[in-house]
Simulated assay, not measured.
Amino acid sequence: MPEFKHHVFICTNERDESASRPSCLPQGSKKLKSAFKDAIKDAGLKHLVRANESGCLDQCEHGPTVVVYPEAVWYGFVQLKDVEEIVTEHLVHGRPVERLRLPSTCLNTEQCPHKPVPKHK
């Protein structure tokens, strides 16, 4: 069997409702995982692409968050309606879906347009 060509990680982290940051699970990420698995199978990629749920990817304000490796393409605000496009465009044709791609300026940064401005003491 050939090695996997892609790994798709779907954040399924869940925080308490009182947490200071949101989490992906309440935004439907478990359903996303199932939809990715089905779409990957339907595209004939079952033995080449692996869809896995992940713990926190630390992109909480962009959730539900999905990352595709080995390219390290980060997608934010992913909805069920986006799954087929990601599978067809990115995983089949090798073209990341730019409208869903998180800008590098939002990854691993303290501030981006999606994060609340920190309060100064």
Rank of each mutant, 00 (worst) to 15 (best):
D16C: 12
L102V: 10
R21K: 13
L32F: 04
F77S: 06
S104R: 15
E110W: 06
P2I: 06
E71C: 10
E53W: 06
L57G: 01
E3F: 14
E61Y: 15
Q79W: 04
T65E: 03
S18V: 09
D42N: 11
P113A: 12
R99M: 09
Q111V: 14
K46I: 08
K5W: 05
L32P: 00
Q27T: 04
D38V: 12
L25W: 02
V66E: 00
G94S: 11
P96R: 06
K37C: 14
V67G: 01
G94Q: 08
R99Q: 09
R95C: 11
T105P: 00
T65D: 04
L80G: 13
Y75S: 02
L57A: 03
R101K: 15
P96G: 05
M1C: 11
R21W: 05
P64S: 09
F77D: 06
P118N: 07
S34E: 11
W74G: 02
T65R: 02
V92N: 03
C56T: 04
L32S: 01
G28F: 03
H7E: 07
E3R: 13
E14M: 13
T12Y: 01
N108C: 14
H90V: 03
L91M: 06
L57N: 00
K121D: 09
L100K: 07
V66S: 04
P116Y: 06
W74N: 03
I40D: 00
A39D: 01
K41A: 15
K115L: 13
W74M: 05
N108R: 15
D82Y: 08
V83M: 03
I10Y: 01
K115Y: 09
L80T: 06
N13H: 13
R95G: 02
L102N: 03
F4K: 07
T88L: 11
E14K: 11
E89P: 01
L32K: 00
C60E: 02
L48F: 14
R50T: 08
T109K: 15
S104L: 14
N13I: 01
L48H: 10
K46N: 06
K115P: 02
D38L: 14
P96V: 07
H62F: 09
H62I: 03
E85R: 10
V68H: 02
H120W: 11
C106Y: 12
W74A: 02
L100W: 08
T105N: 10
R99P: 05
